[in-house]
């Protein structure tokens, strides 16, 4: 079996601080400082997020589950793997082209909008000099980001879900050693 973080206490702490800043400053990619080994199809950056945030009290849904990945996650985090996207606290999307619709995941209830899924989506790459412009909390003026390998319907489904705010789904996109977050409050600017 592969190892996890070399130093669980400090590696989680350093990755968490980047995730926190990523969520606080949406669509602005940040570097994850410590990437653990990971079994396919889980990318090391996605594994870093899972190791940092998941334990026996969380439910994780894998889009492409396999025995090795499941065993690795259970062993290192003790997390519960679930069959249905709607039951997941965290969902790992390893093939965005065939991901389930966003409506399939928990988006909270009106009194507790935090009871919603966080998606970790493995994408092909980020470009900060192209793509759509975004605005919202955490973004000074606007941020530009192009995400490679994300189907267009993701944006359509997300736009539809905006009507439900403050309900919604929060997303971490990971590519190589970078993470960019897309909380529910971020708005796409008309180009």
């Amino acid at each position: 079996m592969l190892a996890a973080f070399a130093d669980p206490v400090f590696d989680s702490q350093r990755n968490f601080r980047e995730l926190l800043q990523a969520m606080a400053r949406p669509m602005q990619p940040r570097e994850l400082p410590l990437l653990p080994p990971s079994p396919a199809p889980i990318a090391p950056a996605a594994m870093a997020v899972l190791l940092t945030l998941c334990d026996t009290t969380t439910a994780v849904w894998l889009q492409q589950p396999n025995e090795e990945a499941a065993q690795h996650l259970r062993f290192h985090t003790g997390t519960r793997l679930v069959e249905k996207p709607a039951e997941a606290d965290f969902a790992l999307i390893s093939e965005p082209a065939s991901m389930p619709p966003l409506e399939a995941f928990a988006h909270g209830d009106m009194r507790y909008p935090d009871r919603s899924a966080s998606l970790i989506v493995q994408v092909a790459g980020f470009r900060t000099d192209a793509g759509a412009r975004f605005t919202g909390p955490g973004i000074r003026d606007s941020a530009q980001l192009s995400i490679d390998g994300l189907p267009q319907r993701f944006w359509q489904q997300r736009a539809a879900m905006a009507a439900l705010l403050p309900l919604g789904i929060d997303v971490y996109f990971v590519s190589a050693n970078h993470v960019a977050a897309l909380p529910r409050t971020t708005r796409t600017l008309e180009s």
Binding site: F16, L19, L20, M23, A24, T52, L53, T58, D89, P113, D114, S116, S118, P137, G138, P166, D170, P183, R184, T185
Partner: peptide
């Protein structure tokens, strides 16, 4: 705490 903080940031 970290999970709760991330949700807190996501829902200002």
């Amino acid at each position: 705490l970290r999970r709760a903080l991330l949700k807190a940031v996501a829902i200002p």
